[in-house]
Amino acid sequence: MRNHNIGEWILGQLMTPERAAAMVGDLKQNGVGPLEFWMAIGSSVLHAISADVLVAAAKGFFLQFLLALLLTPVMPFMFLLRFASWPWVSALLILGIQVLTGIWLGRQTDRRPLLACMIVVVADCVLGLLRFNNASINMSIWSIPLLATTAAISRRHRRKSIA
């Protein structure tokens, strides 16, 4: 039962809640085991990665670098004024970049901002593995809730303004 609710929540990020519930209900009615259930959820996630989600994720990924270029000049200024120590300034910079990227992703992807966020995080982790631009796998993973939350809030705000 708990697995079904979690699976339904995951699917709800990719489709309407009613459709997610219907699909999970079908799987429950079929009496599938946990392995088959999660394979079905996983395959739905993979099939949900449409071109527009990939494009939004790619743009969000490069947006992080653009924001870093724009915000980096601020860092020495803050450090010199002794607002914060260097690690804190870096952390705030990364925090700000993730928040802005999440907001942008929430505005760009109508139905699947969480999926786009996860793709961006995976790309960040790959960069961390390659040790390019000092990216960190840990920072990428820790940025998941922040990125996803801001994207979800941004999407909700966008829907309210449209409605």
Binding site: H4, E18, A21, A22, M23, V24, G25, D26, K28, Q29
Partner: peptide, 14 residues
Amino acid sequence: MGDPTPQRGGRAKR
């Protein structure tokens, strides 16, 4: 959407 059923954990059929 159809009616929810207990067999499906209270979830409706589509």
